[in-house]
C-alpha cells in the first residue's frame, strides 16, 4: 500500500505549492514525451535498413559533423544548468547570460540540422525516397521542432528576466524550461547513438 503513497504536497487550506505542482506536471509531461519519441525511434529502427533505391545511412551520414553538433547540444545542457544555478542564487545578470548562451547553442545546433538536411536532399534523400528517409526526417525533424520550441522558451524567459517580470512571478520558469531543455538533450543522446553511430 505504501508503494503508491507520495509526499502530501497539499498545504493547509488547499494552498498548494504552485511551483511544486508545475514541476510535477512537467515531469509527467516528459514521461509522456518519452513514449512519443519512443514511437518515432521505433519507427526508425524498423525502417533503418529499408533504403530502396535511395542512399543508405552509411553512405550519407557525416559522422564527424554530427558529432560536433551533438557535442554543442550536450554542452548547452551545461550552460542551462549553470543558468538554473544562478537563477536559484537570484543572480539575474548571470542567469540571463547563461540562458542566452543556451539559446545560442540551441540555434547553432538547429543551423547544423538545417545544413545537414539540405545536404541530404542534395544527395538524393528526401522524405519520399525510402521508408528510411521518411523515418529519419520525421524523427530528427520532430526533435528539431522540440529544440526550436525550447529556444523560444529560453528567449522568452531571458527577456522576461530583462523586464523584471520573472522576479515578480517567483514561479519556477527557469526550472521548467531547464527540465524541458535537458530532456530534449537527453533525447538527442539516444538519437545520436541509435540513428547515427549504429549506422557507421
Amino acid at each position: 500500500m505504501t508503494a503508491m503513497t507520495t509526499p502530501d504536497l497539499a498545504g493547509p487550506g488547499g494552498h498548494h505549492d504552485v511551483s511544486e505542482a508545475r514541476k510535477l506536471a512537467m515531469w509527467a509531461f516528459l514521461g509522456s514525451e518519452v513514449l512519443l519519441f519512443g514511437s518515432l525511434i521505433t519507427t526508425f529502427l524498423l525502417y533503418r535498413t529499408r533504403v530502396g533505391d535511395g542512399p543508405s545511412a552509411a553512405e550519407i551520414f557525416d559522422i564527424p559533423f554530427t558529432s560536433i553538433s551533438s557535442f554543442i547540444l550536450l554542452m548547452s545542457s551545461l550552460t542551462m544548468v549553470l543558468g538554473h544555478h544562478s537563477w536559484e542564487r537570484k543572480d539575474w545578470r548571470q542567469m540571463r547570460v547563461w540562458l542566452l548562451a543556451t539559446a545560442g547553442l540551441g540555434m547553432i545546433f538547429l543551423a547544423g540540422q538545417v545544413f545537414e538536411f539540405t545536404e541530404f536532399v542534395h544527395e538524393g534523400l528526401t522524405v519520399s525516397t525510402s521508408p528510411f528517409g521518411s523515418a529519419f526526417f520525421v524523427l530528427t525533424g520532430f526533435h528539431g521542432l522540440h529544440v526550436a520550441v525550447g529556444v523560444m522558451m529560453l528567449m522568452a524567459t531571458a527577456i522576461m528576466g530583462f523586464t523584471g517580470k520573472l522576479r515578480e512571478d517567483g514561479g519556477m520558469n527557469v526550472g521548467l524550461v531547464g527540465l524541458y531543455w535537458h530532456f530534449v538533450d537527453v533525447v538527442w543522446i539516444v538519437i545520436f547513438t541509435v540513428v547515427y553511430l549504429l549506422a557507421v
Binding site: 507520495t6 509526499p7 504536497l9 514541476k23 510535477l24 515531469w27 509527467a28 516528459l30 514521461g31 509522456s32 514525451e33 518519452v34 513514449l35 545542457s77 551545461l78 542551462m80 544548468v81 531547464g178 527540465l179 535537458h182 530532456f183 537527453v186
Partner: peptide
C-alpha cells in the same frame, strides 16, 4: 542536470513509468 536524483519520489516515479514502459 535535471536534478532527478534530488527530487521527490513522486517525480521520479512519474518519469520512470514512461521510461520503463
Amino acid at each position: 542536470y535535471m536534478h532527478l536524483r534530488y527530487e521527490k519520489k513522486a517525480y521520479r516515479r512519474l518519469f520512470y513509468l514512461g521510461l520503463i514502459a
